[in-house]
Amino acid sequence: MKSSVIKAFVAAATIAVAMPAMAQFNVGKAIGAGVKAAKAATLTDEQMAAYVKESVDWMDANNPVTPDDDPYTIRLKKLTDGLTEADGIPLNFKVYRVIDVNAFACPDGSVRVFSSLMDIMSDDELLGIIGHEIGHVAKRHSKKAFRTELLTGALKDGVSAAGGVAAKLSDSQLGQLSQGLVNSKFSQKQEKEADDYGYEFLKENGKNPWGMVQAFEKFQKMEDEAGAKPTYIDRMFSSHPETVARIKRMTERCQKDGIARQESK
């Protein structure tokens, strides 16, 4: 990793202990204190889009994105070929070369996959995770979470937009927003909706939705054997029983649809 990224990570050392797995992901200079109640503010869709773009651009500029000729990039491009939009939202994909096991999607359809996650997942399993993350985008869960982060974080002091132009955010605010994007936690209802959307999305695009089940099973096994939760497990599953229930429900969907399970390689 570039020294500038390492320095930026050191500057973020005061981040909450609840995020230890983000060992190499640069959350920048995010040092915001506790979350305060949001002041009344109005954000148009255009202003929201501007803030999302600024945040995604900041993350891509401050983290090690694998180049086009990198094996990680080549693999992800091959897997996501033809996955261009979800419910009218254009999709784009990039790999961050970091040690954390994680992936996330932004309201604008930007999907970011960490190289360490790719290392432990088969192609079908990785697509299962991507399908689930796209579900959060298509169902606007990511948009709602980002808006909440804006109003209780970066814009908590009433910083707003003037004349329809989004107020410029500082590095510290962008770092805080980036942390929120990467580690957004959703309700069980939202996770279920993302599972269901991801299932249909994968099936409609000629991908095997069993990959989602197999990815969940792999995470469950990792948790059982190691007794520890990689960031993605901690973020995506609120409790072990819920993980089991989600695996069962998605397995039954695959079986009902007569889709053949391909064993992980």
Rank of each mutant, 00 (worst) to 15 (best):
K7F: 04
K7Y: 05
V17F: 15
Q24G: 01
F25C: 05
V27S: 14
G28M: 01
A33H: 06
G34W: 13
A38N: 10
K39L: 06
A40Q: 10
D45M: 06
A50C: 05
Y51R: 02
A61N: 15
N62G: 00
V65Y: 15
D69L: 07
R75A: 02
K77M: 12
T80S: 07
G82L: 00
T84L: 06
G88M: 11
L91F: 12
K94D: 07
R97Q: 11
I99D: 01
A103P: 04
A105H: 06
C106E: 03
D108R: 04
V111T: 09
V111Y: 04
S116R: 01
E125H: 13
L127P: 08
I130W: 00
G131R: 00
E133T: 06
I134A: 05
H136C: 02
V137N: 02
V137G: 03
A138H: 08
R140K: 09
H141P: 14
K144I: 09
A145T: 13
F146V: 06
F146E: 04
F146N: 03
R147G: 02
G153H: 05
K156Y: 11
K156A: 13
S160R: 10
V165C: 05
Q176S: 11
G180M: 12
N183G: 12
K189H: 03
Q190M: 10
Q190K: 11
E191T: 08
E193Y: 00
D195C: 08
D196G: 02
E204S: 13
K207E: 08
P209H: 02
A215F: 15
A215M: 11
F219P: 13
Q220C: 06
Q220S: 12
M222S: 14
D224I: 06
A226Y: 08
P230I: 00
I233M: 08
R235Q: 13
R235K: 14
S239P: 11
P241N: 06
A245V: 04
R246P: 02
E252S: 12
A260W: 03
R261A: 02
Q262C: 03
Q262D: 08
K265W: 14
K265L: 14
